[in-house]
Design a protein around this nucleic acid. Structure first.
Lengths: 361, 361
DNA sequence: ACTCTCAATGTAATCGATTACAAATACCGT
DNA sequence: ACGGTATTTGTAATCGATTACATTGAGAGT
């Protein structure tokens, strides 16, 4: 309507409408273009004007309308994070790292659980091609490959970053740790303590991390001239329940390893609990090392020796790389820094590992 | 605009632009208004037209641009969930329930951790008043009260629903369980097993749930004519660590309770672990009941008897109520079904409880 | 003094969908 | 057959910010 002419004052009854950019412009005595520039490219505006605009912003209590900005900029203002299991505590700190970086950049973070029966395919495609996400961080390495096969319907999809896990055979950049090295570190620690018979509880066979960590175990063993007995490589799936399930298998071995490296902390905790129930002492009878350093590990009884992944940093770096990609793709065609990053890990020694008990060796 | 006249075809080089509503309209031979109506109020359109529009949608691969819709509708298309600790596994299923309902309604779900040092105040206010959320679900009962004190700066804020916890003295609708009754159920179970000396590990003193559950414990005890010895009410804060910390206090009691009801599963697990380390058997020497039925409880050793909260349902109901509020508020001024809901709980009996050992009674 | 360049700002088109209002059409009863 | 009501569809204004392009003014160079 003619709102600009007569500054309507008795048309609306409810709470006062939010100020818009034109209100700020009027108060500051400049055009809306200038206000917009102050807000998104401050260097382009003279200091004097900038100050008066900022004052007007403060005075009016102006808050930008993101829907309008996103519409004009042809973006969605959000990124989506694809997580295998939202309930897995391993991911929460990664998410928090992502959220920190993203919200600083004014982006929303949407989280989708790829293992939800519902969502999965349909919902992910929805995010990818429905203008709902400007970028994607994938924490699940077992997604159907087709999701990432270039364009979809002739339209292109937003940039993707993998973190922790990744889908093999793709050149999307990834933020990872050196899993092979981490596993080797864990096993080297056990060897240094004097262990000679070392077992390994693995993740799911089809998982990329499982294979890399198992390789790391073999690296360390063979470097020490020790045998990698395949009967000591027990199956698991990273969950606590699978750690519990592995315990009877370990107990059934006729020559038991004196130490076990578990490919996740959750499995290590389950394994230890179940051993404990059978009267097997950790670390007295068997040393246990985990992987991840999830929150509970430090508080577990005994506190778990483990390989710490810098989860917050992983999230931050992944989000940062994604932002770069998004900005790069906006301006040019497809440049921006692609290329993966590997973050450092750390062996955290706690109470669950000790020298092997000589009386039982 | 003259855009309709010459259908530019060689200006853009990149991937083909997303079809918009006008493209669909052209293909279907109708106006954009009709297409819009088919998509959001199908009943208003004749069956014939509707079919041809839907066909055109399929043909063009049209996907709605949410930024445009949100701008026009003056909404953000998202709801925010305020969680005390994102890493607490208790919340993940609630979130998943919320996400299920919300995404069905085409709404984004943003999750904010209220205990993050950064975000908290600033970020929440940002969500509330920056057009970033059309509604709010609060899972944290210890938020500064001022956040919810009516309007802010003369502008009003989106509707709020509490779930699980709530801020006292507010009439915002809430989705809860009957905590007092739940605690009573747990204690009644112990009494039925023959226990007479029953202890309680509590949550944080200032938490509303803590008080209600403690009251429930007293209810059940006094109903059975038992004494509620305040020395047997130990402090905790719902976390696993605090369960561990409570164990030595229990051990130090000169006349120990034969059963302990913990106000959260996490505390129960920590408590049991620590007892186990001191050679105290559960349930042989002491029975333990938890509250929540988090994922780990079923797998713990021993499996934990607990009060199950319907977490998925809590999330779904909360989201549903919020949707109602949002729609109601849109149309009229402030009607819509306000009023809270209480969801049913359930006692899950597992291995951590048994009759008291007569030799030690 | 005069032209040229560069910085700062303004004007107005634009992003894509929704919806108030108008127009057209169909259906009814008398 | 005609006014009247209900149903379906179209026209065009609108949501609020961004940005291509135009304009203005100031300083530099000769």
């Amino acid at each position: 309507m003619s709102g600009a002419k007569m500054d309507g004052s008795l048309t609306k009854i409810g709470p006062k409408p939010n100020p818009k950019i034109s209100d700020v412009a009027r108060v500051a005595g400049v055009s809306t273009a200038t206000v917009s520039r102050v807000l998104s490219q401050p260097d382009m505006v003279s200091a004097k004007t900038r100050d008066s605009v900022l004052a007007a912003v403060a005075e009016t209590g102006y808050r930008i309308n993101l829907a309008a900005r996103n519409l004009r900029r042809r973006q969605s203002g959000g990124i989506v994070v694809l997580v295998p299991h939202l309930s897995n505590p391993f991911f929460s700190q990664i998410l928090s790292g992502i959220a920190r970086v993203a919200s600083e950049a004014g982006l929303n973070v949407l989280v989708a659980d790829t293992r939800e029966p519902e969502g999965a395919d349909r919902q992910i495609a929805d995010y990818l091609f429905n203008h709902r996400a400007d970028g994607l961080i994938v924490l699940d390495g077992n997604l159907p490959e087709r999701m990432f096969k270039g364009a979809h319907n002739g339209r292109d999809r937003p940039p993707v970053i993998f973190a922790c896990e990744w889908v093999e055979g793709h050149d999307e950049p990834a933020v990872t740790i050196d899993n092979r090295h981490g596993a080797a570190l864990a096993v080297e620690h056990l060897i240094a303590l004097g262990h000679r018979r070392i077992g390994h509880i693995m993740g799911p066979r089809d998982n990329i991390l499982t294979r890399q960590r198992a390789d790391g175990v073999r690296d360390a063993l063979s470097a020490a001239g020790l045998e990698a007995d395949e009967r000591w490589f027990l199956d698991g799936d990273f969950t606590l329940a699978s750690g519990i399930a592995a315990a009877p298998h370990w107990l059934a071995l006729n020559e038991r390893p004196t130490a076990v490296f578990c490919s996740s902390d959750a499995m290590a905790c389950g394994f230890m609990s179940e051993l404990n129930r059978h009267g097997v002492q950790v670390p007295g009878d068997v040393s246990v090392v985990g992987f991840d350093d999830i929150e509970i590990s430090e508080h577990f009884i005994p506190a778990l020796t483990t390989i710490r992944q810098p989860r917050g940093a992983i999230g931050e770096v992944a989000a940062g790389m994604l932002l770069d990609l998004m900005r790069g793709q906006d301006k040019n065609g497809k440049p921006a820094g692609s290329g993966s990053r590997t973050l450092p890990i750390e062996l955290i020694v706690r109470g669950s590992t000790a020298a092997p008990n000589p009386s039982r060796t």
